[in-house]
Design a protein around this nucleic acid. Structure first.
Lengths: 342, 342
DNA sequence: TAAATTACCGAAATCGTTTTCGCCGATAAA
DNA sequence: TTTATCGGCGAAAACGATTTCGGTAATTTA
């Protein structure tokens, strides 16, 4: 098989009787090169089919114009929208995006951090794995001044960029909504509490109850491992085996909430009349399930765009005086039929 | 801010009184280096915190141990699962994965091809944009001997690897299924016919009708632009404004099929009694909608894994005698309540 | 007219690995 | 003993772009 040779700036230099340095400058519109030469160089470059070798440039500059992404699983709606936003914003600025999924395993996350480090990414966007508690594997980036943006699942105590939503007040509003619909006994599908988002959501739930003088019943707070569909089914059945079942559920994600809707229907509990349900994320399934699932928006694509922009800005301006730059995005409740009683 | 300096093989060489070449070889277990030195080098490397600079290696080898991915939109269930499979397989072999989405626009696809080319990817996995008809932008990879794997939406006439399903017979089976359920007038939600998968699915539909001696009614074949939810709603309404509406729908994707289910319910058409529906892809929504949507499996993650493996194998073995290597994966029908009449 | 800019461009080092030769001494074969 | 062979390693040239110093000629200023 015939593999053509790439044409380099040296080939252009020879062809045009210029030094490679001149070619390099001309191609990037360096001001000390005359317009005439710039145009000639670009003409010949196009005509000879010159393509820049970004590896060479990256090596020289020791940064590769790529943004690394570390997430749990690509095939979750929130995550894929997040990536979509990052990619869109990055590519506009000529950056590539390289992704790695941890499958929510700590040891994968460490491996991926190594691999991304070795590729000399110029910035990193991270949504932590469910297992992650230690953060040593991020120190290598910090030491080299590589900007990190934590998104959604963020750690505390690391001076980096952070992009997230106000989980506490979103959860508060969601719970408040159920209360306004007349719910007196509201259950909560809670995620792993060492993960910030689930911790905050539970706090919001608890405070909404307190502020409305509704007693907290520990039996109504179900601790989930992964908030999967199966866990949602199981939890719903168990709740309705109780002598005093709930009349509302606030689930920390949509998957479990949808499971609750479907399970409730199956066991003859009417939604929303007997049981009002609200979820979190606004996944596609929430508008498909019948009745439609009320939920909290999660601006995934925007969060991705903003995360990429943080890194892009950082590349231009360097560290701001204040390294700890946290962006909190707004959310709102979408009321569908799963909670609409009035 | 303090940016530590990277430690290179030169630093190791100095420390150990070896030549850089020896270090390089020792680190990759080159056979002409003694076991003793290999061990010593690795020890010191670990202890000094040496991290390989893959950019330098890539430049030297003119290939970057990364697989490029070109797809329409990440946030489609099929696509995100596909990427997931690619990433999983690639990372196992120490390859990175860099993604670019075209948003189904031809001009983006061309831009992305350029960007990926410039990054010296070692292989490319492509699912074509909906708009793409010309394929010139792939020639640059072929000229350099960079393997391309087309997945799902594949072109004809290019000698590359291809991974897809048998859309024709899957569609045939889906249509046959509706017929077996007693449908006499089966509509088809057809995708853009220049896209192979939609073309094949339509052919399968047509042939199934013919083989069962069911007359083809052109009014029952709806040509969609993008097979979106909105298009699905509109098409369903129109079908039931006809004097002689269908009693079955085979949709070329799940999104439009789910729209059909929900619209049918809204306008008082019973599913599956009055209207049996089957989709394509087995998206998450298909098991959530009520009644559950019968559909055809689409082994997205497997297709991703296989695509990555094609490239990985290619890197080891080079071109096979036969460049045109097409892998066809099996699919099967999932029967849910949207089509179950018996 | 002399001095000082300014406009354009070139030489060469550099980024960190990989790899092609080849060298030297030691062992094995003749 | 002589000739091959081989194990273990080093020197140095790549890979392709960027960038720091300059340098020369043309232009402007004094």
């Amino acid at each position: 098989m015939k593999t053509k040779k790439d044409v380099t700036i040296y080939d252009l230099a020879k062809q045009l009787n210029y030094a490679p340095s001149t070619i390099s400058r001309a191609l990037k519109d360096h001001k000390s090169i005359s317009q005439k030469t710039i145009i000639r160089v670009k003409e010949v470059a196009a005509q000879m089919g010159y393509r820049p070798n970004s590896l060479a440039a990256s090596l020289r500059n020791n940064k590769s114009k790529t943004i690394g992404i570390m997430i749990s699983r690509i095939s979750r709606p929130f995550i894929s929208s997040l990536i979509s936003g990052i990619e869109e914003s990055a590519r506009k600025s000529g950056y590539n995006v390289i992704i790695s999924q941890s499958n929510d395993l700590y040891k994968n996350e460490i491996q991926n951090a190594k691999a991304l480090y070795d590729s000399r990414i110029s910035g990193l966007v991270v949504s932590l794995s469910m297992e992650t508690k230690k953060l040593n594997h991020f120190q290598q980036f910090i030491d080299l001044g590589i900007p990190i943006v934590f998104v959604d699942r963020v750690p505390k105590g690391l001076d980096t960029y952070k992009v997230l939503i106000d989980n506490y007040s979103a959860a508060y509003k969601a719970t408040q909504h159920l209360i306004e619909q007349g719910c007196k006994r509201i259950a909560h599908f809670a995620g792993a509490q060492h993960v910030n988002v689930y911790h905050e959501r539970k706090k919001g739930y608890l405070d909404a109850l307190k502020d409305n003088k509704i007693p907290v019943d520990k039996n109504l707070i179900i601790n989930f491992e992964t908030l999967s569909f199966e866990e949602g089914e199981k939890a719903t059945k168990e709740l309705f085996n109780m002598s005093n079942p709930p009349d509302g559920i606030f689930s920390a994600n949509d998957t479990a909430a949808v499971a609750a809707i479907m399970t409730a229907k199956k066991i003859g509990v009417r939604v929303p009349e007997d049981l009002a349900i609200i979820g979190f994320n606004d996944d596609p399934i929430s508008s498909i399930v019948d009745p439609g699932l009320s939920t909290v928006t999660h601006p995934a694509t925007d969060m991705g765009r903003i995360s990429a922009d943080k890194i892009l800005d950082h590349m231009i301006n360097g560290y701001k005086s204040n390294n700890t730059d946290t962006t909190i995005l707004g959310t709102h409740i979408i009321v569908r039929n799963s909670s609409k009683r009035k």
